[in-house]
Structures are given as C-alpha cells and as structure tokens.
C-alpha cells in the first residue's frame, strides 16, 4: 500500500510504451488515476477489491437467501435446516397463499394506503412551508422559523403524545399513523435551503410580469427542484412504509394493522397467523408452511423499497447534502 512501488517503475513513462511492463503498469493504474499519484501496488489493489466484495456481499447475501427461501418448498427447508442457500425446486405458492386474502393481504393494502396518503400530505405541506419560509424579511419570518427549529431540539415525549392522540379520539384510526409525524422540520429545512439557493432574479422577473407566489412556486420553483422534492418524498414514504411502533401504540385492532406490524408479530415473534399458515408447522411435502410464507411476507415488505429506490437514488447527494450539512 505504501509508496514503495515508485522505485520499481521508471519515472519518465515516455520510452517504448508498448513493452509488457508498461502495459502492466497502465493496467494497474487504470484510466482514472491522476498523473501525480503513485502506481498502486498489486497487493493493495487486491486487498481493496476483496474488502469491497465482502462489503457488497454482506449486504446482498442475506437478501438473496431470504428471497430464495420464500420461493422454496418445505423439503428444501428441511434439508437446509432453515434459510435456503442453494436453489432447489422453486415455487410461488407462498406468495399466492399470502396474497389470496387474509391478514397479510389486508395489511399490505393498509400499508400502501397509509404510505400514499401520508407521503402526499407530508410532501405537499412541507413544500408549501419551505417556500413560505424561503424569503427572509417576510412577515413574521423569524418567529415562524423558530416554531420549526424548536421541534428539532426538543421533543414532547412519548407519553404526552399518546395522551393527545388518545384524547383526540384517534386510537384505532389510520390518521393516528399519519398526522402526529406528518411534518418533519428537518425535511422542511432541506427544501427551504434548496429553494433559497435558486437564483432570485428569475422569480423577480416573474413577479414583475405579474405572477403571484403560488404561480412562482408552481411554475418556477417546483420544476427546478424536482430532485430534492423527490428525495424528501422518498424520506417521508419510507418512513410511513417502515413504521411499526406507532401502529403498536395506536392500533389495537389487528385487522387494521399495517404490514410491518404483521411482520413483527407473526414473523419475528412467531405468533400463529390465523388462517394463513404463517407460524404453523405442516410437514406435508410441497405444502407451503412456516418459513417460506414468513420470508414471502418479508419480501413483500421490501419490494416497494426496491422499486422506488433506484428512481430516487441518483438524486441523493444533491438533495441530502443541502440539508444534511446544515451547519
């Protein structure tokens, strides 16, 4: 890894570039290495490559076994004694079972509903608030900003929040899973920072042409901020999709449970799932039981993230950095 390699190679790389050593050297250096940098040592490159492979493998391997197990039959599971690592006979019966009505199907619909409604509400409210706060010197600008900032430094606490939700009569209502966390001051500040970075002269020009703030937001600011709005929407969406504790607090009726809570009770804690085979042990060959169904529920909870993630992922650095390094 150290700079030792320097002395093995001739410093002026001009003479006869077609020799074997020169080609070897060019291969090691790669195309993108800046000229001032030393040649990498082969050992260093190897260690780095292995490390990166291990890291990527640590993320992907568990996902592979989970998906494979959800597609396997009980015979494969008995053979491997748990998660399946080598593909055997594949079947989709675990999926047809959980998606043919019953508690998992219902929970999936509930989760999708909460996520869609919650994300639309949170993103809309946050974009509006961020634009409303993006012009320093406007009426009551500082006091209103305080209202947001204080919530980032001091949270009211679990008990008073629960008592409030309960007093509002929201226990067992889906709104209890949306409203209490609908606005995140952090996300508002991410959006606001981006809006404030937009060139003011464009907006001023529009104003002179008679556009009001609503039009400026809708026709100038929003089209220029698609990336950051997408990232904030993803943050909200993932938050709603992944939440289980708020449902554990506020939703007593398990017919109304979102998918994550079903996952916790029936998959993680192994409570028997009424009428869908999860948690039941049935040794009939070919029948879908226990583990495949459990892992199919897992995959069901992961799929939406895998679908949305690639669309938004490329905007991360742009969007996140603005807010994340807020200091």
């Amino acid at each position: 890894m150290t700079a030792q390699t320097e002395k093995h190679t001739p410093t002026p790389p001009t003479p006869r570039p077609s020799t074997r050593s020169a080609r070897y050297r060019a291969l090691l250096r790669g195309k993108n290495r800046p000229v001032w940098e030393e040649d990498p040592s082969p050992l260093g490159l190897l260690v780095k490559g292995v490390a990166l492979l291990l890291i990527v493998g640590t993320v992907l391997y568990p996902l592979y076994t989970v998906v494979l197990t959800s597609l396997s039959t009980q015979a494969d599971i008995t053979r491997s004694g748990g998660l399946v690592t080598v593909p055997g006979s594949l079947s989709l019966s675990a999926y047809t079972q959980i998606l043919s009505g019953g508690i998992v199907t219902r929970a999936t619909i509930v989760s999708i509903g909460i996520t869609v409604v919650g994300t639309v509400l949170s993103t809309t409210v946050s974009v509006l608030a961020a634009y409303g706060l993006s012009r320093p010197g406007s009426f009551a600008h500082r006091p209103i900003l305080f209202v947001f900032l204080i919530t980032m430094f001091f949270g009211a606490g679990l008990i008073p929040t629960y008592l409030l939700v309960s007093n509002l009569g929201l226990i067992n209502s889906y709104w209890s899973l949306i409203l209490p966390g609908a606005v995140s001051a952090f996300n508002v500040l991410i959006l606001r920072a981006f809006f404030m970075g937009i060139d003011r002269s464009i907006m001023d020009a529009a104003r002179i042409d008679g556009a009001g703030d609503w039009r400026i937001l809708g026709q100038i600011v929003l089209p220029m901020s698609k990336a950051v709005v997408a990232v904030v929407a993803l943050f909200y969406g993932v938050g709603y999709w992944n939440a289980f504790f708020n449902a554990m607090l506020y939703i007593n009726d398990n017919a109304k449970w979102p998918l994550q809570l079903v996952l916790r009770s029936y998959v993680l804690q192994g409570v028997t799932l009424p009428g869908s085979g999860v948690g039941q042990v049935d040794l009939d060959d070919g029948a879908v039981t226990g583990l495949p169904v459990k892992m199919a529920v897992m995959v069901l909870a992961i799929i939406p993230i895998l679908v949305v993630y690639p669309m938004v992922q490329r905007h991360f650095t742009k969007g996140v950095i603005f807010g994340a390094i807020k200091g």
Binding site: V125, S126, L128, A129, Y131, G132, L133, R135, S138, F139, A140, I144, V147, F148, V183, V188, G212, D213, W214, L217
Partner: peptide, 10 residues
C-alpha cells in the same frame, strides 16, 4: 400567500 402556505405545517 407565504403565510397561508406555512399555515398547514404550523
């Protein structure tokens, strides 16, 4: 209009 926009979040 700015105040109306901030109102729902507040």
């Amino acid at each position: 209009s700015l105040l109306i926009m901030v109102a729902p979040a507040v």
